[in-house]
């Protein structure tokens, strides 16, 4: 496969040149608009708190300072551990969730499955109605006893109906004939799923896998609810806690008339927030190109058939 997959190898006419020009301008402009604020965030994270609060953001650091990063990395061992927890969790969670969701989506996409609409509705319904935090919290803590247990971080994101339905739409794009051919060859359903459907689904698996990984990577909420042992904190929660504590504390000071509460601590908040964004974004940005190759080159059904 090469880059010309999508264009069928004929893209040399005037029409193609016009299209390319439009594409470069349009996508280039959007990419730039997306880049600039991020550059501002990065440069703010390397600025001093004082300069940011006086003159706002810029494209270059103002009054270069590593204060924010030294606050983030004040306890390097904790950060390293938090990173390890997050990486392992993201890895396991993504693989298990991706398998579970794809298998379910495969069944729901099969036209010869009698109750596929019923079950699709059964799953979709859960995105419309929910009982709120209290019963869920009771279930997790009082019945499943998952406080301070990594499963409390793994389970909540294991199954997403959105991903399920998106995956289902991708699978439905695979011609039925391929699946029936596999059945005629004597493949069982699991075998068909693994040897016929999975190879065809690479871009879809990469996409949904990316979304699942991002969800695990960014999740601090489950940790806030169920993890109180600071040795078990995932990265996002550790950092979230750090920044929001200072913020929330300052807010309370402001609303709290009493001077009994200790006077404000002088810590960076704005720049710390920016540094935090950079710290959590970094690894995913590095990972993204790996996923990207599935968007740059697709699959050819003919090749699979052959």
């Amino acid at each position: 496969m090469n880059d010309q997959t999508r264009t069928g190898g004929i893209s040399n006419g005037l029409d193609a040149k016009v299209l390319h020009a439009i594409s470069y301008v349009f996508n280039g402009a959007i990419a730039l608009v997306c880049l600039i604020p991020f550059v501002m965030v990065v440069s703010a994270s390397f600025s001093s708190e004082d300069a940011i609060s006086k003159t706002g953001f810029g494209l270059l650091p103002k009054d270069f300072s590593l204060e924010a990063y030294s606050t983030v990395f004040a306890e390097p061992m904790i950060i390293v551990r938090a990173y390890a927890v997050t990486v392992l969790l993201t890895l396991c969670g993504t693989l298990i969730a991706l398998f579970l969701q794809t298998m379910t989506a495969y069944v729901l996409s099969r036209k010869d499955f009698a109750w596929r609409n019923g079950f699709s509705f059964f799953f979709y319904f859960t995105t419309l109605f929910n009982g709120g935090l209290v019963p869920y919290y009771l279930l997790m803590t009082q019945y499943l006893h998952l406080k301070n247990n990594y499963l409390a971080l793994l389970l909540p994101l294991l199954f997403s109906v959105y991903n399920l339905l998106i995956m289902k739409s991708y699978i439905m794009a695979i011609p039925d004939s391929l699946i029936y051919a596999a059945k005629i060859d004597g493949c069982g359903e699991m075998r068909t799923l693994f040897s016929v459907v999975f190879p065809m689904l690479k871009p879809a698996l990469a996409t949904v896998g990316l979304f699942i990984a991002l969800a695990y990577w960014n999740d601090w909420y489950s940790a806030m609810l169920y993890i109180s042992n600071d040795k078990m904190y995932p990265l996002q929660y550790f950092l979230y806690n750090k920044v929001n504590n200072i913020e929330a504390y300052k807010k309370i000071l402001e609303s709290h008339a009493g001077s009994g509460v200790a006077a404000a601590i002088n810590m960076p908040t704005q720049t710390l927030k920016m540094a935090l964004t950079v710290v959590v974004t970094g690894p995913i940005i590095l990972l993204y190109p790996l996923v990207q190759k599935y968007y740059v080159q697709g699959i050819t059904i003919g090749a699979v058939k052959g």
Partner: peptide, 29 residues
């Protein structure tokens, strides 16, 4: 309960039947 999370977790201590005896409180906030 850290400053960042007490808004959520304070009430969960009670609705989640947590076993505890004493708790800080203050009017409004």
């Amino acid at each position: 309960l850290s400053w960042a999370e007490h808004d959520t977790k304070y009430s969960l201590l009670f609705s989640g039947n947590e076993d505890f005896d004493l708790i800080f409180t203050a009017a409004t906030w």
